[in-house]
Design a binder for these strands. Sequence first.
DNA 1: CGAACTTTTGATATCACTCAAGGGACGTGG
DNA 2: CCACGTCCCTTGAGTGATATCAAAAGTTCG
Lengths: 263, 263
Amino acid sequence: MITDRRAVRAPFLHADQPARGDAGALIRRLEQFDALEGEARNALERIAGTASSVAARTDLIREGEAPEGIFILLDGMACRSKLRRGGPRQITAYLIPGDFCDLDLALRPRMDHTVSTISTCRVAHLDFASIQQLAVEAGSLVQTMRRATLVDDAILREWLLNVGARSAIQRIAHLFCELLTRFRAVGLAQGDSYELPISQLDLADTTGLSTVHVNRTLQDLRRQGLIEFRSRSLMIRNLPRLQALGEFDPSYLARWGPPSPPD
Amino acid sequence: MITDRRAVRAPFLHADQPARGDAGALIRRLEQFDALEGEARNALERIAGTASSVAARTDLIREGEAPEGIFILLDGMACRSKLRRGGPRQITAYLIPGDFCDLDLALRPRMDHTVSTISTCRVAHLDFASIQQLAVEAGSLVQTMRRATLVDDAILREWLLNVGARSAIQRIAHLFCELLTRFRAVGLAQGDSYELPISQLDLADTTGLSTVHVNRTLQDLRRQGLIEFRSRSLMIRNLPRLQALGEFDPSYLARWGPPSPPD
DNA sequence: CGAACTTTTGATATCACTCAAGGGACGTGG
DNA sequence: CCACGTCCCTTGAGTGATATCAAAAGTTCG
């Protein structure tokens, strides 16, 4: 829960590693929401080409700072978090490849939260001028990105439900199911497994639990044969049961929700 | 926690009560974010003029349904909520006069949550065509509304922190401080007091606590001389202490955050 | 090969939940 | 105007889930 491990501020995003432009995850993610025209794809490839590598545990932007554009995550894992003064931090979102932050943040003068890398990441940065240019060149792309942002909001609401209304084991089960769905959507899951480079402390800060209890809860999940979670890699052993346990229903992540519930 | 009290679906928003167009709260709220041109004000007055009255405990739109426009709340109080199957609901937001829902929801085919009135409300409905028309007539207005929406996101993150990382008494203290700030911003607070037509069950569903514990926590707050909460009305007796207790910092609600924290 | 972090374990404490029931308040129908 | 139902608030007693404290064992990495 203690988070004195004060992350280093990203000095600046200069491409210390040229980074081949791999817009794959980004394109896959956006295609969930709308078909992408060739022009849009080109723009995305171009943006991805400007990405640079950022070390693990680095702040991309901090609470209170003025945003200067948006970040697009192409590889690795990052998170948004808020700090309780003197207390634990709360992780409010995970960013996985293809995710980006704060399309409309140009409209806000200060960040209300911090965005940090968790593992080593490849990150592209788009300043506001480029976004506006993009809106002109490939108008529907910005609309598609906005659509994706709405899913982020839905995730946030689901997390609030998770933390506010579910038990420890359910919270973790639900989170693991959500991440599987999201990693799959960008082609980064192998079957029911995926790389998950987060620590148990991160998990605690996400679910509102103590690290000790997270640890015991993970053991419980293992003992039930539902998961394996070792060396930054999660293997779901029994997805149906994990989903049932976590009450996971992926419709909040999807482009199309299921038909209205019978009433 | 049980929420079988299945709210009635709004039959349709026909103006059974002509409702004078009082756009006051809406204008005040939007002016927090940007100056409004005369044209924009006229548009808002016109919209407010179409508002109708909706009974308490009525669903405006339900989880799974397709949105058909946005709702603008002119009077009364409403909330967004999600239902855990077989379990308690989680309230994910309160709407107060001047708030509206889901500007960009045209971009999503299904609601991931339900919006319901809490008290009797006056609600205006804007369909997508009208929004587009508005974007043409008063383009900056839509931008201003988007800005307001970003505050809603910030509130959601703050709530997640609240529920995930604070004690029962802090959660409630924080919520009461937030609502005071918001009611003040639209001119609906009298000093440190405001009308708060929510039940202790609502409060429990908001904070992730049981009703019993909410009740005891409220008594604790009363005993400490911090609040009075009776007959749907909240009076804060000692705002500084309540803020300190809840670790309330209003910057997430503001147009301008405070200067960057020392680094 | 030691420093720093992460995971794990044990023991104890406590905050918040559950169950159960009584007492208002309010509205509705007889 | 009383009787009754239905919420909503309140109280008590007992329980349980999760936190805290402390320390050992395992990892990672320079």
